[in-house]
Write a protein that binds this DNA or RNA. Structure first.
Lengths: 238, 238
DNA sequence: ATTTATAACTTGTATATACAAGTTATAAAT
DNA sequence: ATTTATAACTTGTATATACAAGTTATAAAT
């Protein structure tokens, strides 16, 4: 791979500060070093430092208070993507299980795919896989995923258990989710879905179709979700 | 009311540009005046202009492209709040109708209200109302709303038809939505809901419970939604 | 007519600086 | 001991400027 050009200073500052907060060096409520202190540390000037801090405000890492400083906050939840929550206690990692039903495989797009596809996407085809997620050994969420097959060498051999899809894309392929959309319906479970989710046929389930756009042109992630909400619900912070 | 201090220049720029885009003077895909042109018009310098443009990027009004300019975009939907969309054509204003079923009225909180309430909220009570929304004369969304009754004089006399709840709160009471959460289920419509939404009893509908926090302490907006998704779906951009 | 180079534009990153305005600890006055 | 003023800090807003780097229309060369 070609060595990429050096990061702009303000982006390095963003990365450094986010890392420090993520790692717990600064905890919620703590004051970040003042703008002038950061200027000295990074040998730069306030406009550059403030450019970085603006990004931390947007992503919810900090709030600023005039006269006081930059206060570390709870980072916002990611992108309005719904997570599954239980009615009672929080769901611990060990109560979550993911089963791969269809292993990642190269496919061509269906002729009447729900979303409109660009010519580049049509040419590239997709990588398809499906997963069934369990909470406390109860099947709760069936998910089919289509990823445009662009710049994803050896992806079909990756391990996608747990919550690792976004991690894998980010770590090995530098893919970041930029924005997206989701559509939501309530439908009656058909035969296949009711069997997967251990429900009576026709039981109300939440169906979602999502399109996530990434930082790489034409590389989009599409997913169809079918969720059993008898014991759990879909949850979203914004 | 006391005359507030003059708006900072960059905020005036934000307001002006947003207004121009909202009013359609610049349409999706159009190029905004270049930074240097805006500098001349407002008799200021690029850092100030860029401070304003940064805000427009964050709220999704524009995207910028190096070498080209600031391109007007589709503004992001607000705060991950789901809107109702049709399968076919876009929904025009005249196809939307809102019927007030229960007029705004002061109430006390239910003993086992779904969300936990602060002592101040319990003491203040709430303003309750319910609305039924139609698209093309089809009842699609039944919504019950509870607003903590704090600093809302004469609210029960306000007109809440159309999409004006947030506008009313903002315009007359300076209330802004800061953050929120939503929980989503698929349920079978009970007798009352199925009648309101003109569905067979037991038809799958989307049920949401939402809590929206505002800039005013203890003033929260709670709403229960019941949505008929046979002809339309809930839609969300993020 | 087509290709190539260039000039003139655009936004991206950065420095250097100034004063306004809010917060907080300290020193001075009572 | 308590109050008051001040100094030293913080972020907020703004000016002025410079060069890098991407885009596009135009002019020059072929």
């Amino acid at each position: 791979m070609r060595t990429s050009q050096p990061l702009p200073l303000y982006k390095k500052l963003i990365d450094d500060l986010k890392k420090l907060i993520d790692q717990g060096a600064f905890k919620k409520g703590d004051l970040l070093p003042s703008e002038n202190e950061l200027c000295k540390t990074y040998n730069t000037t306030r406009p550059t430092v403030r450019q970085a801090l603006a990004e931390l405000i947007n992503t919810g890492y900090i709030v600023r208070q005039q006269g006081k400083g930059s206060i570390v906050a709870e980072p916002k939840k990611g992108l309005g993507i719904l997570s599954v929550s239980g009615f009672t206690a929080g769901i611990h990692d060990k109560n979550l299980k993911t089963e791969i039903l269809d292993k990642p495989q190269k496919k061509t797009w269906d002729d009447n795919f729900f979303y409109e596809l660009s010519d580049e996407e049509l040419k590239a085809g997709n990588i398809y896989f499906s997963r069934l997620r369990y909470i406390n050994d109860l099947p709760v969420l069936f998910e089919e995923t289509f990823i445009t097959n662009i710049q994803l060498p050896r992806f079909t051999t990756r391990n996608l258990e747990d919550r690792s899809l976004f991690n894998t894309l980010n770590k090995y392929y530098q893919v970041e989710i930029k924005e997206g959309e989701q559509k939501i319906w309530a439908i009656g479970a058909d035969k296949k879905i009711s069997k997967l989710l251990a429900l009576k046929s026709g039981s109300p389930i939440v169906h979602m179709k999502r399109k996530l756009k990434t930082n790489i042109r034409n590389l989009n992630i599409y997913s169809w979700l079918y969720c059993n909400t008898e014991e759990y619900y879909l949850h979203d912070n914004f």
